Amino acid sequence: MTNSVRIGKHEIGGDAPVYVIAEIGLNHNGSVELAKQLIDVAAEAGCQAVKFQKRTPEIATPEHMKQTPRETPWGTMTYLEYRYKVEFEQEEYTEISKYCDEKGLDWFASPWDEPSVDFLESMDVCAYKIASASVTDLGMLAKIKETGKPVILSTGMSTIEQIDKAVETLGKDNLVIMHATSTYPLPPEEANLRMIDTLKERYGVPTGYSGHEPGLQISLAAVALGAVTVERHITLDRTMWGSDHAASLEPGGLKHLVRDIRIIETALGDGVKKVFPGELAPLSKLRRVGA
């Protein structure tokens, strides 16, 4: 098994702390200032990374959706016009990259088409995140492989055979796999957290969890089951306009998530049975028969 993968300033796997990714995605609603506020939220909570999404709207938008009317804060427009409205380009990402560096956070994005890989390479991202929707885009995966950068692969809405092909295309060097179920919001009966161990055993690479559930319990259980990285969508307010806000964590929830992940990490220990210092006083008072 590949013990760990280095992304930006951090190791993932091995004995490293769980790598917590705050998924900003499109929850910036096209505003760099809102993106910066979300970066602040991630930094203050103790996350190690933030993630965005990058599209070439003309390519990434399905044909049947392009002319569909969409009600937005900027008025009624086509779905394609909306996609352009919320898409960041070089100027915005240059500002975001500098801000993340100031906050000590890694940043990267999920490309949704091959030109977006070229764009992200021009921004010198430290890694690539492959969204569950892109598992079968083997041409894009091959292009990402050619960059030589670390890759995080989400596995929602995919069969094990489709994941096999994606892993074969990407290779296992510098690969992290994320168990995910792409239901928004995720009900507990579809979480299937035992897949974390299944993926780890099948592919032998660091394995984590990308969650879309309300609350924290399932993500925390994933850590207890061995997830080495956790990704959650974040927002300033779940009632904000936009498709992903309702399935996102607000600032207080994100802080609690990171806090509790660190407690679980400490509590897991090393698996070696020993008598701890805190047990010595009860031992002397309670044990009647010595060894």
Rank of each mutant, 00 (worst) to 15 (best):
K51R: 09
L120P: 02
E23P: 00
L199K: 01
A221W: 05
A45E: 02
L193T: 05
M240R: 09
K285E: 15
K36P: 08
Y184C: 04
T78L: 04
V167A: 02
I130C: 05
H28E: 09
E91H: 05
A22Q: 00
S219A: 15
E81D: 15
Y209H: 06
Q48F: 01
R232P: 02
V5N: 00
I7E: 05
D40Q: 02
I264Q: 07
A127V: 10
G30S: 09
E114D: 12
P69V: 12
S110Y: 03
G30I: 14
P251N: 14
I12M: 01
I152L: 12
Q162Y: 08
L120I: 05
A45H: 01
R194E: 07
P277Y: 13
T198P: 04
C47Q: 04
T181P: 02
M1N: 10
E265P: 02
D106S: 05
V205L: 03
Q53N: 06
E58F: 09
I177C: 02
Y82D: 07
K145C: 00
I59V: 15
A166S: 11
L257H: 04
Y79V: 11
L141V: 11
E44S: 10
K149V: 08
A281Q: 14
P282Y: 14
A191V: 13
P62M: 07
K273V: 09
D173K: 13
R194F: 11
E102A: 14
G30Y: 11
D197A: 14
T76F: 06
V275I: 15
D164G: 04
